[in-house]
């Protein structure tokens, strides 16, 4: 579903990604772990077609970036630590806007379905600026799945959430993954990643330095795996 070969991204003279290789099979949930500055967000922005690669091949859902970016975007849902929602519009108006931008047929029923999924049906006519951070993040997930994407990218979705909101987000993420979507998530929260992902990749200094499936990890601790990967 995602194939990346020898990806390089430079900002001026500084190389953030240095020949990164990455593959994700359909239905996999990959947790992309790594310290600050490892290049996780840059990598996700390239997969989302928000940034152009300097070198290398990037294919998402069978389409090549950046040439077939519009086809990729139609099959992609992105959630970041920012909600990507308009504070002066209601939850319903935000979803309606994105439904128009994705050309979704029968948008009202799809919006209702999504609002029920993220538990915000009762607040559909409230302005987003009145929502808590957790509610905004749930609505952000609703926005991202509105067009039923095959691939989901989550960039630090737990940032700024309290314990209750994080637990609620866990449930929403599990239901998103249970629908057979391919998911790539960056997170600093190893415990939550361990709970959700089927594979763990460690990104450090612009390359993937270790990869392990949930099965291969067995009873080993994810924290130990992560520390060993960074130390190697």
């Amino acid at each position: 579903m995602i194939e990346v070969k020898k990806l390089v991204k430079r900002f001026g003279m500084k190389a953030v990604l240095r020949g990164l290789d990455f593959n994700v099979q359909p239905g996999e949930f990959v947790a992309l772990l790594g310290p600050n500055g490892a290049g996780k967000t840059t990598f996700l922005r390239i997969l989302a077609s928000l940034s152009r690669p300097s070198l290398g091949d990037v294919n998402v859902a069978g389409y090549r970036l950046p040439n077939q970016a519009a086809q990729v975007r139609a099959r992609l849902g992105v959630v970041s630590h920012l909600p990507l929602l308009y504070a002066d519009l209601t939850a319903e108006e935000n979803l309606d806007f994105y439904a128009r931008m994705y050309g979704i047929p029968d948008a009202p029923s799809r919006m209702t379905e999504v609002l029920q999924m993220v538990g915000l049906e009762a607040r559909r006519r409230d302005l987003v600026r009145t929502f808590s951070r957790g509610m905004q993040q749930r609505l952000a997930i609703g926005r991202a799945v509105l067009h039923d994407p095959e691939v989901m990218l989550f960039d630090e979705p737990y940032t700024g959430l309290d314990q209750d909101a994080s637990s609620m987000l866990d449930e929403v993420l599990k239901s998103v993954a249970a629908q057979g979507r391919t998911v790539v998530m960056t997170s600093h929260d190893l415990a939550r990643s361990e709970d959700l992902a089927t594979r763990f990749d460690v990104l450090s200094r612009g390359v993937i330095v270790a990869s392990a499936s949930r099965e291969s990890l067995g009873n080993a601790n994810l924290l130990t795996f992560y520390k060993q990967a960074l130390a190697a």
């Binding site: 077609s49 909600p83 990507l84 308009y86 994105y98 931008m101 994705y102 926005r143």
Partner: peptide, 17 residues
């Protein structure tokens, strides 16, 4: 308004010209 809450990314992620 587009930049502050990441909405510009939301716009750019839409599969439109």
């Amino acid at each position: 308004v587009e930049k502050d809450r990441g909405c510009l990314d939301g716009l750019l992620l839409a599969p439109v010209d």
